[in-house]
Design a protein around this nucleic acid. Structure first.
Length: 751
DNA sequence: GTGCCTCGAGTTCC
DNA sequence: CTCGAGGCAC
């Protein structure tokens, strides 16, 4: 439907007619896609329509219509809203599930700040709204942008839709010149019920719960639909600011209220865990009468100065926690257990359930984790579910962990059908028939088929094109499966992606002629692939899907070696040492076992040394291996996994074929060192008076410094408080710069 | 050797 | 989002 005549040969009149037709079709597809009806066309067809529209507009710019689909808020279902990078990350919260964990939260904060158990410490306590987080950016009192949370770093621009929400003011006065207000968009129970009545009357799909209704409404391409939906907004936090809002959390919330935002009237100040738990009870009891969904209570350290000192862990602030309500439970029947095979060959059991509503969502699948989990044991062999195993036909109790992932909490043995047998976990891969084995001490059984296994091959390819890896537009999971199964234009390994265009050109059955594809969509895909012949080294490394080498490890490795050649030659040289290391590990294990058997003390290090020496590793190889495992974040397990992948002829062949297709592998960007301590190795010694040790370390690391515990030749700076002993002496001997706590604070500009 | 903390991998539903 | 496991500090 999208193909039509080649754009270059269109007459002006034809182009005009075609643009009108496309505009209409796309508008109809938009309405259909976004909830008013069931989708009528596939995403690929939709993208093809948009692509053709864009191509014609490019060829005849003067014919572009005022209602051109390319001008509308959304571009396509997959890239409907433009991306917005949050100036301040939008983080999630850590969780607490009982009184003990709340007390632990308080204790952790006191420890970190160096406060005794009796020192006064105030928290705010407020209901946790079950909606969607939104960040509103105000400049000089005007709303200029609204963005969803997304992955925390990058969200979606939903400004036009946010402007239709009554609780969100267009203008505010008396605010800082720059103010990002954060809060939750939600729908009340009453509005949700009324909306579903209207949906039913119109024969449209109803929403499963208020949260989904709010999410669906906010993500409308057509802001007039959002306007018709009764969305509300509670403000409870902030992002980037040109000046502080207040000195306390409570003060800031009051300030937001004064600026015209709706804040939650159940927010209270509490003097410690006891009062926090009491307020939790109050909120839990009010839950049914609030008129909107909440899923817990949030506690935050009230003093903003202390919040700043506490700072953040990788994904959560240290100064706040969400105390979640107990998860909703539901009983249903387990109809079957299926096995999925992941990219590393992991066999993952999935429960197929008789559909049941849990927490407002119909659940029909649940994860069963692994073999032991089904049998009723955890990874340490301890009983879970009182040791009850799970059998097909059982009545099982389902909950959604973190309100998302369905899991099985319990089994009703009284309802177990007669003759139900314990589940027998397969020992061969259900996809390829290879042996599926379990390493000692490992919880997961893995298919040994490697790339012979079609499931592993496809999953590996999906990983290769995924967002954090090659991120090829128009080549998602679905397309990868299609190409992998294709006999005419097969993609069986990463290099095949890059030869796709050339092979297509030589083929009679062109991609552009296929169902769901058109000239432009095929051309767009080929272009997207061409664009990725230039790729960052860390992405390439991550994309290979080597076990234990994730996004972060790939970045660490790129940082360490700087170039692809340096990395590969290091791995090649280090191979003998890697093999010797494995032999030593195995010898150590064997010795431990043998010793346990005949009840003597194990002589592990000797066995280890003997096995290593027997390998006669060249000095150069050993040196490179040592350098590899000394790299930041890289240990022997990762190093061995890497070494294996690059030494395996099949895998290495695929890697080399891929690299040959690439134009350039970009070295990592050297981190901008805008702080005076970036890249320096710092040691703290003696007592610190204005901050605790943990705090000093976290602060230094956030400025790009590496904090070490002992002084060595690698140390750049020693921060010595009163009572500094041997470390200060050693630093003096080595001629290392030494400063005191105040010197450190003024150095980093925190005086 | 032990105990954090972070990373990797797998998963559900829309 | 959660669990298991690797890395690293103590």
């Amino acid at each position: 439907m999208s193909g039509g005549i080649a754009v270059e040969t269109l007459s002006e009149a034809e182009a005009r007619t075609e643009l009108a037709r496309l505009s209409k079709e796309i508008a109809r597809a938009n309405t259909a896609y976004h909830g008013e009806d069931t989708p009528e066309i596939s995403d690929a067809d939709y993208d093809a329509l948009k692509a053709r529209n864009a191509a014609i507009e490019a060829a005849f710019p003067h014919l572009k219509r005022s209602d051109s689909p390319s001008e509308q808020v959304g571009a396509s279902p997959s890239e409907a809203f433009s991306k917005v990078t949050h100036e301040q990350r939008m983080l999630s919260l850590g969780n607490a599930f009982d009184a003990g964990e709340v007390a632990e939260f308080d204790a952790r904060i006191r420890r970190y700040l160096g406060l005794g158990p009796e020192a006064p410490l105030t928290y705010t306590s407020e209901p946790k709204i079950d909606g969607l987080s939104l960040s509103l950016r105000y400049e000089n009192g005007r709303l200029i942008q609204a963005a969803t949370r997304g992955d925390g770093q990058v969200g979606e621009n939903v400004t036009a839709n946010a402007r239709t929400i009554d609780d969100i003011p267009e203008r505010i006065s008396g605010a800082p010149a720059l103010l990002e207000v954060r809060g939750e968009v939600y729908m009340s129970h009453a509005d949700f019920a009324a909306l579903n009545v209207r949906q039913t009357e119109r024969g449209a799909k109803t929403f499963a719960n208020p949260r989904n209704a709010a999410a669906g409404s906010l993500r409308q391409l057509d802001a007039t639909i959002t306007q018709a939906r009764p969305l509300r907004f509670f403000a409870y936090a902030w992002g980037a600011l040109s000046e502080p809002l207040a000195e306390t959390q409570m003060g800031a919330i009051d300030r937001l209220g004064a600026l015209g935002f709706v804040t939650n009237d159940m927010t209270r100040l509490c003097d410690g865990p006891k009062e926090m738990l009491a307020h939790y009870e109050t909120i839990e009891q009010a839950r049914a009468t609030l008129g909107y969904d909440i899923d817990g209570v949030v506690y935050k350290v009230n003093d903003l100065g202390l919040q700043a000192r506490l700072g953040y862990r990788s994904t959560t602030p240290r100064w706040a926690v969400a105390h979640k309500f107990p998860a909703e439970l539901a009983w249903t029947r387990l109809e079957a257990i299926d096995i999925q095979v992941g990219r590393t060959g992991a066999l993952s059991p999935v429960a197929r359930l008789a559909p049941v509503t849990v927490g407002g969502v119909v659940v029909s699948n649940a994860t069963l984790h692994n073999e032991d989990y089904i049998a009723g044991r955890d990874n340490k062999g301890m009983e879970i579910r009182d040791g009850k195993d799970i059998r097909v036909g059982d009545w099982v109790q389902v909950y959604r962990a973190g309100d998302v992932i369905p899991k099985i909490a319990d089994v009703d043995l009284t309802k177990r059908p007669e003759g139900a047998a314990p589940y027998e976990f397969p020992t061969v891969c259900p996809e390829c028939g290879s042996d599926a084995t379990r390493e000692e001490g490992d919880a997961i059984r893995r298919c040994t088929g490697g790339l012979i296994c079609p499931a592993q091959a496809v999953e590996k390819l999906k990983h290769f094109v995924s967002r954090a890896a090659f991120d090829i537009e128009g080549l998602g999971a679905k397309q990868v499966e299609m190409f992998h199964a294709d006999d005419i234009l097969p993609v069986r390994e990463p290099a095949d992606i890059f030869t796709l265009r050339a092979r297509d050109a030589e083929n009679v059955s062109k991609l552009a002629k296929r169902d769901g594809w058109g000239v432009t969509s095929a051309a767009n895909l080929f272009q997207a692939i061409e664009d990725k012949r230039e790729i960052e080294m860390s992405r390439l490394l991550f994309a290979l899907g080597i076990r234990h080498v994730g996004e972060v490890a790939a970045q660490d490795l790129a940082q360490h070696y700087q170039s692809w050649e340096a990395l590969t030659s290091a791995l090649d040289t280090a191979r003998p040492a890697a093999l010797a290391r494995r032999a030593a590990d195995e010898a150590a294990d064997a010795e431990r076992r043998a010793a346990a058997e005949d009840g003597r003390r194990a002589r592990v290090s000797e066995a280890r040394a003997r096995a290593f020496a027997a390998r006669n590793v060249p000095d150069e190889s050993a040196a490179i291996w040592d350098d590899l495992i000394a790299a930041d974040g890289i240990g022997p397990v990762m190093a061995l996994s890497l070494s294996d992948a690059f030494a395996n002829p099949d895998e290495r062949g695929a890697i080399d074929r891929l690299v040959a297709e690439l134009r350039s592998i970009l070295p990592p960007e050297t981190r901008a060192d805008d702080s005076p301590v970036a890249g320096k190795t710092v040691v703290f010694t003696g007592s610190l008076e204005k901050m605790t040790r943990a705090e000093a370390k976290a602060r230094a690391e956030s400025l790009g410094a590496k904090v070490s515990g002992s002084v060595s030749a690698k140390t750049d700076l020693l921060v010595a408080g009163p009572g500094a002993g041997s470390k200060a002496v050693k630093a003096a001997e080595l001629g290392i710069e030494t400063i005191d706590e105040d010197g450190w604070l003024s150095l980093i500009g925190d005086a």
